[in-house]
Design a protein around this nucleic acid. Sequence first.
DNA 1: TATGTATGTTAGTAAATGCTAACACCACGG
DNA 2: CCGTGGTGTTAGCATTTACTAACATACATA
Lengths: 204, 204
Amino acid sequence: MVSTTEGKILEASLSLFSQKGYDAVTTKEIAHKAGVSEMTLFRHFVCKRKLFEAMYETYIFNPHFKVLFERHMEENLERDIIKICYCYQENMLKNQKIFMTQLRNQDFVSISDTPLSRFPSELKRLLMDYLSKMKKKGCFIADVESWAVNILAYNFGLFMLCLVNKQLISGTGIDNYIADYAKQLSIRSQFPIANGLRTAMEEN
Amino acid sequence: MVSTTEGKILEASLSLFSQKGYDAVTTKEIAHKAGVSEMTLFRHFVCKRKLFEAMYETYIFNPHFKVLFERHMEENLERDIIKICYCYQENMLKNQKIFMTQLRNQDFVSISDTPLSRFPSELKRLLMDYLSKMKKKGCFIADVESWAVNILAYNFGLFMLCLVNKQLISGTGIDNYIADYAKQLSIRSQFPIANGLRTAMEEN
DNA sequence: TATGTATGTTAGTAAATGCTAACACCACGG
DNA sequence: CCGTGGTGTTAGCATTTACTAACATACATA
């Protein structure tokens, strides 16, 4: 719980903007939720837009995937994947509300020019570098890009599933899913890609 | 291209609501985009909210996963997974704009009581039934629930990745990713789950 | 021709909303 | 005791927005 006036206003902003989006929230609403007069809000943040920007700067959490890949990889595929998944999920959890805000305001703060939108491509690159290195070591022989996308998609999807439909995920949390996923990947890594199977989809 | 007045208004609504959310769009804007007077909009749809509902009813596409599982499964894990993935992606693509609208308006049309929010749990159930059947046949021995969630998460994530960050996915489309994914699953299906590997994450 | 139907136009209303001005209150330090 | 800084309150302004009323126009069909 924050005690300063600015802190309370920022907290209320985060909560409301993430729930309803920028346009649907009024300054009066924010002030009320912060337990503060509307006037005070404007005295501190000048205008609604600047309040939004201040809120964004305050609560955005820049992921540190670079450090993860540089310093915490063991070159054990299964254990490394688990770490990557955990780092990803933790990061998304920290940014959850900011992320929701962005989803609800695509045209306001363009989704293609924020830390949150840049980091998937950065992570993909890091993943591909890592997998290439593992491939050279012979730990893994499948397609690097396909895998990087797989890891990204699975993690993103897992996070979104929890967000949109919590009861879909069993009570034990996502730890088990991640452990299973990592195990699955490390087994799959021993096999090359099969071709000629793409005909199944034309039949549908 | 629709030619009727109502059709043009509905089309414009879908486009704008999905881009900006309910509150951020004005009736004037919709009328303009539809090439129609604002008055005409109200004559046809009474009020903004009813226009939104009409738009929703018009464009929602109810997925038919039931038919897929009842009639198109070959009991070949790899080929079946490919079909399921294709059906999922097709369905999400058809509902993409409605889905965006919902993301941007969580509190307006509550996300927990619409066809779009019900279908993931329905699909999970169908997936678990299918996998259980395959397990009985000996085609597969891993954990059923973990797999169902895996398939859901991967597909949801793949869709969201394309939505949020198109250039992340290579030009060849998602067909290759799905084929690789199905192949990976069908190989993994031959192995049980490993335990005692969850320690890797506590170290981070 | 006459009548009805769908649409456009113009003007406007009531409410909401972002934001400002002016003034009062209160606590704290000198 | 006085001044200062942060806050609340009240009133209000300008704009936007959902929505209406009234009238005009074009077109088709009887």
